[in-house]
Computed example of a mutant assay.
Amino acid sequence: MSYPFELGEETLWDAGYHSGLLYASLAGSAAEFVKLPTGLTATPQGSCDIELSTFRAFVQGLYGTYSSTPSPVLHGLTRGLLVTSLVLLERAGASITLKPEHEEALREEKTAFARSMG
């Protein structure tokens, strides 16, 4: 059983059911923290639609939180959600600007995540 993340007719990530639900749940909680909607909408068919401009703004807000603190705890709590979101953005043909000090490490993690995200 899967939990696809879809942009229009395109599946950006055909997540495993539990991985997909956890990601959507974490994104929802993070959205409350950054005070921005996620742009993710669960469908009755068991998938998740992505509204790209809203999702991009959410990822930008999440990255803003990540990049504005030196806290290793906040970095650790945010990083997996952020990297997964960056992969989805890239697959949608969108991106956000990363600070030079984060660009290489996040790019490497994004590449590793993308391979495991099928």
Score class of each variant (00 low, 15 high):
Lys35Ile: 01
Thr97Leu: 03
Glu32Asp: 11
Phe33Thr: 11
Glu103Asn: 07
Ser68Pro: 08
Val87Leu: 09
Glu109Ala: 09
Phe5Ile: 06
Thr65Phe: 14
Gly8Thr: 10
Leu21Pro: 00
Phe113Met: 03
Arg79Ile: 13
Ser67Ala: 15
Thr78Ser: 15
Tyr63Asp: 00
Ala24Lys: 05
Phe5Met: 03
Leu40Phe: 15
Thr54Asn: 10
Arg79His: 11
Ser116His: 04
Ala27Gln: 02
Pro72Trp: 09
Pro4Cys: 02
Ala30Asn: 01
Met117Arg: 03
Gly46Met: 04
Val59Pro: 07
Leu7Pro: 00
Lys99Val: 01
Leu62Ile: 09
His75Gln: 09
Gly20His: 02
Thr111Lys: 15
Ser29Asn: 13
Gly39Trp: 10
His75Tyr: 10
Thr84Met: 08
Leu21Lys: 12
Ala15Ile: 08
Leu77His: 13
Leu89Asp: 03
Tyr23Phe: 15
Gly8Asn: 12
Pro100Gln: 14
Ser67Cys: 15
Trp13Val: 04
Gln45Val: 09
Leu40Ala: 06
Gly118Ile: 08
Pro100Asn: 08
Tyr23Arg: 04
His75Trp: 07
Pro72Thr: 08
Lys110Asp: 02
Lys99Glu: 02
Gly20Gln: 01
Tyr17Phe: 15
Lys35Ser: 13
Glu32Arg: 12
Thr38Val: 10
Ala92Cys: 10
Ser2Glu: 10
Leu106His: 04
Gly61Ala: 13
Leu26Phe: 07
Gly16Asp: 13
Thr65Gln: 13
Gly39Glu: 08
His102Cys: 06
Met1Ser: 13
Leu98Val: 07
Thr38Ala: 11
Tyr3Trp: 14
Glu9Ile: 06
Gly8His: 14
Pro44Gly: 11
Leu106Cys: 08
Pro37Gly: 12
Leu36Asn: 06
Gln60Gly: 06
Phe58Pro: 01
Tyr23Lys: 02
Gly39Gln: 08
Phe58Leu: 02
Gly16Thr: 00
Tyr23Trp: 11
Tyr17Thr: 02
Lys99Leu: 01
Gly46Asp: 01
Arg79Thr: 12
Glu108Ala: 13
Ile96Gln: 03
Ala105Asn: 12
Glu108Asp: 12
Thr78Cys: 15
Gly20Leu: 01
Ser85Asp: 08
Gly39Phe: 06
Tyr17Gln: 02
Glu9Trp: 08
Pro72Val: 09
Gly8Ser: 12
Pro4Thr: 01
Leu89Asn: 03
Ser19His: 12
Leu106Phe: 01
Thr111Val: 12
Ser29Arg: 15
Ala27Asn: 00
His18Trp: 07
Ile50Cys: 02
Gly8Trp: 14
Ala30Trp: 04
Glu6Ile: 04
Gln60His: 06
Thr84Trp: 04
Thr97Asp: 02
Glu90His: 03
Phe113Gln: 05
Leu88Gln: 13
Ser95Gln: 05
Ala31His: 06
Thr84Lys: 05
Ala112Val: 00
Ala31Met: 05
Ala15Arg: 03
Phe5Leu: 06
His102Thr: 11
Gly76Ile: 05
Val73Arg: 04
Ser68Lys: 14
Leu82His: 05
Thr54Ile: 11
Ser25Asn: 14
Glu103Cys: 04
Gly80Arg: 05
Leu26Cys: 07
Leu81Cys: 14
Ala27Met: 12
Leu98Gly: 08
Pro70Met: 10
Gly64Trp: 07
Tyr66Gln: 10
Gly61Ile: 05
Gly8Cys: 11
Ala15Leu: 09
Tyr17Cys: 00
Phe33Asp: 10
